[in-house]
Amino acid sequence: MRDYQQEKPYVTWFLLALTLAVFVAETISGGSENVNTLITFGAKTNNLVQEGQWFRLITPMFVHIGILHILMNGFTIYYVGQILEPMVGHVRFLIIYLLSGITGNLASFAFGSSNAISAGASTSLFGMFAAFLALSVIYKENQFLSELGKSFLGLIVINLLLDLTMSGIDIWGHLGGAVGGFLIGLALGLPGIKRPQIIFRVLAIVIIAVISYFMYIKGMIVYG
């Protein structure tokens, strides 16, 4: 494996800066816990997605509700991003972050509460966690990646169990983000070293496309 520690996590820094900038704009515009402000800045409500505002499957990963929310997610973006991005590369990292965020929001759209406002980077964060798990599966002979995968699997399980004990948590978004991140991680692998056979990479892409389409259609039927 290349010396990934030499790489700088530029995309992580950009995503964190963008997320913080949006939060400041929310605060100035009426408050990050104000419903109208959250809707204006792109938080997801299922009825608005059903009405054709599909961009709300993307924008919620940059919108946060309250100071504790942004502090927790901002720290996690920084901490996990500076490990994952240098390993997989800038482009792969951005793909994992964005697509797992979208699959998480699609899962929330398909299975979540119709009236809830959903926002936050946690859909993408669970995708990042699951990407480590995917890498540990692909490169199971690598002890470092194997141990890293176990650690992040434990983190996913613990967080999902905590989700079950707390109100107002979008567990479907977290699950969808994790599934998306795992499949994207399988499809991409690591640059410069052995990757999964092409059939497995294509299969992972097909599966995530089919699941995403199913969740979108289900959400449109349920809330249409």
Rank of each mutant, 00 (worst) to 15 (best):
I65T: 06
G189T: 12
N159I: 02
N105P: 00
S118R: 08
L98W: 11
F23P: 04
I198K: 13
M72C: 07
L99N: 11
I199Y: 12
K194D: 12
R201M: 12
F75Y: 03
E85C: 02
L94G: 08
S122D: 10
Q5E: 14
L48S: 07
Y216W: 14
I221F: 14
K140D: 08
P191C: 09
G30Y: 14
M215A: 09
H174Y: 05
L38M: 06
F144L: 08
W13L: 11
G176H: 03
V91Q: 12
V88R: 08
I193D: 11
S114Q: 07
L164K: 11
L18P: 12
F55H: 09
L15K: 13
A134D: 12
M72D: 04
Q6Y: 13
A116D: 12
I169A: 13
I205E: 15
A130F: 00
G168H: 08
N105E: 04
F93Y: 13
N73S: 11
S122C: 03
V35K: 15
S146E: 13
A209S: 14
F214M: 09
L135Y: 04
I77L: 06
M128V: 05
I67F: 11
V179Y: 07
A187H: 07
L135G: 04
M128K: 00
I28M: 14
M128D: 01
L15I: 11
G180Y: 08
Q53I: 04
A21V: 11
Y79V: 03
N47P: 00
I102Y: 05
L125C: 02
V49L: 03
E141K: 12
L188R: 12
G30N: 12
Q197H: 13
T76F: 05
S151E: 01
T37N: 13
K140H: 13
N115M: 02
I58R: 00
T37G: 09
E51F: 01
L16W: 15
F111P: 00
L84F: 05
